[in-house]
Amino acid sequence: MEFMSQAFSEASIIFTESWVNNNFLVIATALFAVELIRYAFKKKLSWNMVGDSATNLITLSFLLVTIFFIGLAYVAAFTYVFDNFSLTQLPITGWSILGCLILADLAYYWEHRFFHSNGLAWGTHSVHHSSPYFNISVAYRFGPLDWFFPFFFHLPLILMGFNPFVVLLCETLVQVFQTLLHTETVRKLPKPIEAIFNTPSHHRVHHARNTQYLDKNYAGILIIWDRMFGTFAREEEPVKYGVYPRINSINPFKVYFHGYTKLIKQLWQAPNWHYRFKLLVKPPVWAWKQEQRRK
């Protein structure tokens, strides 16, 4: 308990975050290699899957280039708000980090639900969902504005007085936890774990295009948020991955921009401004239904 009350320096938090980031990539790469071997043994490995995985990693590099340019502004904005507008400034202790992690996980739930709830955000997040496969590399399949929206969902934590670097560390921990969930290798974990935590099984459901699984299991670390807010679905029938319609491409540029290319096309062809506005704020299924109706 005393450890939880001990104060940590900001420098140690920054060090921990980069340590987690750097070392986790090594672990994820090793796990991905194991997955590929497993697929090979099961005779499920194809050139398309390898190409799709390579595309995923290329979209990661696109995101990293973006973060290289805007990362400093992101941190500066957090720090500016923390210094000038936060309600209080909480000490950096184990308790603060634990509290921040739970709240960052809750913020992630809402951010993720937001990504699925409107055309503007879905334009970027659909990239992550567009792979017809489900392996660790899919966790690194990012869209062009994936860095942008999370800022607004984590800003309240800064206003509450959590140190910006603690918030960034917790964002990283939530992200890292989720990366491990992108696998078909693990079927189901023991019941108490499945009840509380997000697991590969729960996250497979989230990536499914089966009707009963749509818009379910938004959780980051704790699945209790989905259970609580009525967006939980258990994995029962086999999952079909990807988005509808499928993009059928492993061209990294096409994959990275297809969400917004499609949205721009829809906006261009929209009959009026009211429809255009709805394309941005309504869930993607709304646009699909309108198209079906017109056909």
Partner: peptide, 10 residues
């Protein structure tokens, strides 16, 4: 308190 010195204002 045990604190980070940047939190002195708190």
């Amino acid at each position: 308190k045990n604190i980070a010195l940047e939190s002195m204002s708190a």
